[in-house]
Design a protein around this nucleic acid. Sequence first.
DNA 1: ACGCATTTTGCAAGCGTGTGCAAAAGTTTC
DNA 2: GAAACTTTTGCACACGCTTGCAAAATGCGT
Lengths: 343, 343
Amino acid sequence: MLGDLLSKSFVSANDVAQHAGVSRSAVSRTFTPGASVSEETRKRVMNSAQALGYHVNQLARGLMRSESGIVCLIVSEMDTPYRARLVRALTHELQKAGKVSMLINTDRSDGGVDSALRQTLSYRADASILLSGLPDKAITKLCLDSGQRIVLINRDDDISGPFHINLEDHQAAKIAVSAFLRAGCRSLAFVNSEVGTPSLMAREKGFHAAAAGLGLSVVTARHGNTVYESGRRAAHDLLTGLNRPDAVFCVNDLMALGFMDSARQDFGIRIPEDLCVIGFDDIEQAGWSSYALTTFAQPIDQIVQASLFWLGDVKDNQNVKSMTFNAPLVWRKTIRGNHQPIS
Amino acid sequence: MLGDLLSKSFVSANDVAQHAGVSRSAVSRTFTPGASVSEETRKRVMNSAQALGYHVNQLARGLMRSESGIVCLIVSEMDTPYRARLVRALTHELQKAGKVSMLINTDRSDGGVDSALRQTLSYRADASILLSGLPDKAITKLCLDSGQRIVLINRDDDISGPFHINLEDHQAAKIAVSAFLRAGCRSLAFVNSEVGTPSLMAREKGFHAAAAGLGLSVVTARHGNTVYESGRRAAHDLLTGLNRPDAVFCVNDLMALGFMDSARQDFGIRIPEDLCVIGFDDIEQAGWSSYALTTFAQPIDQIVQASLFWLGDVKDNQNVKSMTFNAPLVWRKTIRGNHQPIS
DNA sequence: ACGCATTTTGCAAGCGTGTGCAAAAGTTTC
DNA sequence: GAAACTTTTGCACACGCTTGCAAAATGCGT
């Protein structure tokens, strides 16, 4: 209390030990779950710690133990609804597991994912979860070699070592075609960005394949990023001509919403009477009554759960190297006709 | 190369020193900007570091230096558009400043903000930025005493010690009233949540005060959280009766959008012909053409800039304890009549 | 070639923690 | 009460880094 004015800023385990009249080991063990301390000294240490405002220095602890408790989330454009929701869920669950999350923004910064992974190494992160971008193989190896776990969510699949979480994009695309077909649509369109992420391309390929299998033609538009405005541009691209499509599968909800707004307001098209629309992600806005977009839902909970599974004990994980989840179709009002599930 | 199979996972400065034939101090200094190393040894060290895959251990460095380089962002409901955007901007700018951001989610977790700040202490964070919730005073003091900087964004103002960043909520509310008046509105409504954050209440108070000053009456609705659905409920609340308001100021864009959707679809109200709407935040969705919401823009850049200013050198900051920014009105299409700026 | 000023370098003492090991204390058993 | 255990405790070293200090190396002027 007296040293308040010019006290050394942090109180160490030493100070606590002195105050409690025990050895420093005792206080260390008090804060180490499962260590051997008598109930009495633990009490004494706890009291002193409380009185002095002691907190274990996780930096020092991380130096000794192999684990720092830090998990890095590597993500760009994190204010995108889907990404934001995933980040929120991940941090929440990581905290519950006693981890702490370090957020690395790879927007358009120098080095991007690679420098992010380097930072990951500097802070001795226990694991990195990548929601965006693709890491250089050499750096990935470096991370793995230093005992780090790596999780790739919806990323490229040909890197070995990391744990992969993917979606049944192909299957979803197939279901989209079936839904359109059942609604009586015959002239299909696919709206993609120019990004070319594997999962995005899988949806496109799957859609084309499924349509071809049924003898339906598909016209494709690709514009900019997977954002609202690109969806609008796609609408202008696809709806200007004479033979308009009567169904459009957008690679992403944001694009779908932009497409819908433009279709209705710039072209006077009614949805779903004149045009059926399906999106992907099931972001919050898709449920807003101005849109009521039928869309495939990201299985956020499963993705998060799988990520945390991979951070658990090694022995359990030896065999499994990837998990693939189903993205269920959420029926709203942008498809006409009956809304029964499709097998 | 040979030790690949069972190598100790991390390469230390010692290893690099040995490989380069210099002392450990030399490699340390090589990675310390502004330290005294000859150009030649620096080169040698760099080469060895590269070859061995060495990365400074920031945990150990943080142990010696006073600063860990970690800045904590404490936030709940971070997938809200405004929050997500702020987090994105903060992390980006923090990284540019050589800091790293630790994201702490206080959603409905045990302890909330207080335990978040405790974590902050454990990791010896250089600073904490609070976007949500209010910290206990004792813990705040503990953080400050241990040399941590604290930034409160749009939080309560009566805590001394932290740096406060606030908005001209009162002023904005006044401008909203003027805009409504000029558009010919006479029957005003205010839509708030039940959250009761100081800045939210300031908008409400300011709106009432300004309206009263002009002899206009205001009816207020408060529902749940500051989310879309609450806006809908407010609409049902305010638009069901006979004497409907012809202008509504929503404390938040999300509520405004919910209100608009319900007003149009459930009540057949035209905007802005029958009803003028103003929101707050200028989230991306406010600009979507289905809404074109006139709203006050969060000055994100200024907020971020101010936050980083406070993390700078102490000497410059001694005097200033808070900053207040103007939230400019972004004119779109939910107010009828002329769209000139209001003094 | 020499003295002096300046840069570069290595040594060693920390930073705050975890943990193996042996000594001390406590507990049970006969 | 002593012997044989078991639990608790303290010592001391390690983790990987920074940095003050003094010694070594270098540069400069004469």
